[in-house]
């Protein structure tokens, strides 16, 4: 049963990611409608359709992962790391916000599922506590969850052998994720921003992919690149400077605080084997 469940977890994550890709990237493939004026057509339904889609998808994933990863240990560690991520938002040193690097490290050490949950829930709690629940929240949750998830897929054992190189690799990774997810998070509302006419920054349905990409790149560069660079730079520095001690701490904890315990042997001489994840 447990093999089936493990396999299903992978399938659920993959399927949900597919939904995420479809939902995030709609500005790139929605076609122009012949004749009709777009604005009164159903093309305008797409953004709302995708908000609903992301919400459903998040629900499915959180429910699914909760049902299988719902041991007290998992829930407690997740809850407290989430609280730390939210609390780090209050630490304002050079405008750095700590919401992003913890899911990266969490996913990297505790695995992709944990990373996804940590990323998604951190944003949710942060929004619930500090204000910021809105239609944008599901997209942010999904994107940050992905960051944690992808970090969990990095070859941890091989990177660990790099020694001091490990935090450097993670720092570059964090920088790239910071930029990519900045770009992805802006994508969903891009079509809302300007009129679908004229300007080189505007979204228009039905353009060629390359053209759309070019336009989006221009839009992104103008509107949020500086801010995202700043944030990605923060990630980079935090992971580079603190990656080693923080990883060491989390790994030691991970070893000590095994996630599953399975009984082995008979009733009177029991051995309990620890299975990490």
């Amino acid at each position: 049963m447990s093999t089936i469940n493990r396999w299903l977890t992978g399938a659920a994550i993959a399927a949900a990611s597919l939904v995420g890709i479809v939902a995030f990237s709609y500005p790139f493939y929605i076609p122009r409608q012949a004749g009709a004026l777009e604005i009164t057509s159903h093309a305008q339904d797409a953004p709302f359709l995708f908000i609903a889609l992301i919400v459903l998808c998040l629900g499915a994933l959180l429910g699914d992962l909760g049902a299988t990863q719902g041991s007290a240990k998992h829930v407690a560690v997740l809850g407290i790391l989430t609280a730390i991520a939210a609390a780090l938002r209050t630490v304002r040193v050079v405008g750095f916000s700590g919401i992003f690097f913890l899911p990266i490290l969490g996913g990297y050490v505790f695995g992709p599922t944990f990373g996804f949950l940590l990323g998604a829930l951190s944003l949710m709690v942060s929004a619930l506590m500090g204000g910021g629940v809105g239609p944008w929240l599901p997209f942010q949750m999904f994107a940050t969850g992905w960051a944690g998830l992808l970090s969990g897929l990095l070859p941890g054992a091989r990177l660990q052998r790099l020694g001091r190189g490990e935090p450097a690799v993670l720092a570059v990774w964090g920088f790239a994720l910071g930029l990519i997810f900045g770009a992805i998070m802006n994508l969903w509302f891009w079509p809302f921003v300007f009129a679908p006419q004229q300007s080189a920054l505007n979204w228009q349905p039905g353009l060629a992919l390359a053209d759309t990409l070019g336009r989006y790149a221009a839009f992104y560069a103008v509107t949020s690149l500086p801010h995202d660079l700043w944030r990605a730079g923060g990630n980079f520095l935090v992971l580079l400077l603190f990656g080693r001690p923080l990883l060491r701490l989390m790994r030691r904890f991970h070893q000590r605080f095994h996630f599953e315990v399975e009984p082995v042997g008979s009733a009177h001489t029991l051995g309990f084997v620890n299975r990490s994840q």
Partner: peptide
């Protein structure tokens, strides 16, 4: 002990 911590348990 032993369900949360693992390890070897003997006795009743």
């Amino acid at each position: 002990v032993p369900h949360f911590y693992g390890g070897a348990f003997r006795g009743r």
